[in-house]
Design a protein around this nucleic acid. Sequence first.
DNA 1: GCTTCCAATGGGAGCGCTCCCAGTACTCAC
DNA 2: GTGAGTACTGGGAGCGCTCCCATTGGAAGC
Lengths: 337, 337
Amino acid sequence: MAENAPRRQPTLDEVAECAGVSRSVASRALNNAPHVSRAKRAAVERAVRQLGYVPNSTARALATRQTGAAALVVSGEDPSIFADPFFAQVIVGASGALEEADLHLMLCLAASDRGRKRVGELLRSKGADGVMLMALREDDPLIRMAEEAEMPVVFGGRPVGPAPRWYVDVDNVGGAREATEYLVSRGRTRVAAICGRLDTEAGRARYRGYRDGLLAAGLDPFPPQEGDFTEPSGAAAMAVLLTKHPDLDGVFAANDNMAAGALRTLREAGRPVPADVAVIGFDDLAVARIADPPLTTVHQPITAFGREMARMLVALVNGQDPTPLILPTRLVTRSSA
Amino acid sequence: MAENAPRRQPTLDEVAECAGVSRSVASRALNNAPHVSRAKRAAVERAVRQLGYVPNSTARALATRQTGAAALVVSGEDPSIFADPFFAQVIVGASGALEEADLHLMLCLAASDRGRKRVGELLRSKGADGVMLMALREDDPLIRMAEEAEMPVVFGGRPVGPAPRWYVDVDNVGGAREATEYLVSRGRTRVAAICGRLDTEAGRARYRGYRDGLLAAGLDPFPPQEGDFTEPSGAAAMAVLLTKHPDLDGVFAANDNMAAGALRTLREAGRPVPADVAVIGFDDLAVARIADPPLTTVHQPITAFGREMARMLVALVNGQDPTPLILPTRLVTRSSA
DNA sequence: GCTTCCAATGGGAGCGCTCCCAGTACTCAC
DNA sequence: GTGAGTACTGGGAGCGCTCCCATTGGAAGC
């Protein structure tokens, strides 16, 4: 009669019985722990194979107080922020590093009150062993949540305000400065900036780098023309700049999406790039290569960024105390500047 | 002395004690179950607030045999497949639907033997309540794993071979056919195809649609020029086509990435688009709008695709038996054709 | 031959929650 | 006043695993 019952997954007890050992021995054998004789170890392995046993991860999690999962939280005011290919690359890197540590990846788009509330509960209910936080804005409620969670937290990109204990970031200031200096070195003197959201640290830092670069060359920085890191916002910002400063001859955009938008606006306005206006981006996403003309841009190692963030979290979960990391950028010259 | 101990999260027992009720009553109150007096319900709520109690999700999962998580598995031979912005949009949709059902999202890039093995273990160890499978190739080992997992499985896009019981797909044949017919209606008579991987159902179906469209118009289909859905592969395929069939006047690319690549090759070859060669894509990703000229393409509702996939899985998890779903496509005309 | 020591063993107590079920108290109809 | 019915209540048995610890038996040392 049990024959037709929906066959449950076998349990450790059944494996132990089948192997003629106690549950303890079976458990130790399974976890490659010492104090198991060769013979019994073999017997357990046989039983595992015979019964098709796989340990129940939930039960294990309860007993060990470790879930075997890490959460990657992407903040934002609406989920479409995640459509930026930047995040996909981060995930590729993070996923690889987590795989090495045998952790699963939980992805949380915290882009609504509901979403943020769920993240809070995930953290407080010990639903993951640690968290990676990205795309935080100034006074982001997630910052508090993370602090209150008694759980390792790694910031992917410093938040606005005091630097957290553990983070991975990119040299935003340096990269932006290098880009601007490059523009200047190519003879541009009226270089405007399409900057990213100024309620993010990346947005601010890149504008600072731009400003530093111009000041160092004795040129006047333009006031920030703010976009939100999307292509349309870049196109719009470029249009405004063209009206306000028709004589500009260079543009630093705080990311490639906005640079692509700027390119579009310039094309529509009949301002040839780079002959008339030089454009430079930031990120070195696929769009930089596809754009017409191909974008000169500040490359940042996005996959490495994700990887290092995950590695830092793994270290934290293992009780270590890693140090913050700032990844270098590098200028990639193509045709737009 | 307990004062200085690292304060553990309070447990249900402590909440119960603090509220002066039994654990059972506290549990019922927490889950809004019946058979709890107003007074005790209030007492429990007060205790919860006072102690800052949050139920431990692992313990709950063990007791209920439900993890509260759904896995999204992206197959592929290397993780970079995930860099395709297509997946990000799917995730936005899926994430929203899962949020409604209060499920968390586990993301698995099964792009190595190790990765696939981990997915297998996730499924068999009951690490999630259900799975969504995407980007499967012919004879993909994940198909078997999914079958063997005693867990709801939804396919995002039919796999090559017999249709699974539950899937969400897009009308690939119809969309490709409409695109091709559009090209023909605009007077193109020598229309080539840059098709996607032919070991995926989407790749095959779109080629079929292309072929059907040409045959219906009494024109000869070109043999498939295969790419792998990436921009460089599209550029390469276009180069080959240009050599083999210099007289072509239209190209149907099986996705926007490859269409963008084709555009690049055509530009470099000095073949104006669409004057000389008309190009049409598939997906309607951001790149289609950014491309120069902006791509005419087959729009598919990607976010809805993700959402419906997740909803189907939720229905399955709730014991319902949803029916497969095929989403419509729609031609979006811009300038490339 | 008798301690000493240690690898191997298995019983049992959790981990923190849900849920069955027996028991209690109370209302209401007759 | 009695019995049936009903809304609460809390004890206890799991869910499937890990891990502490007391126990055992054989090898090693004298």
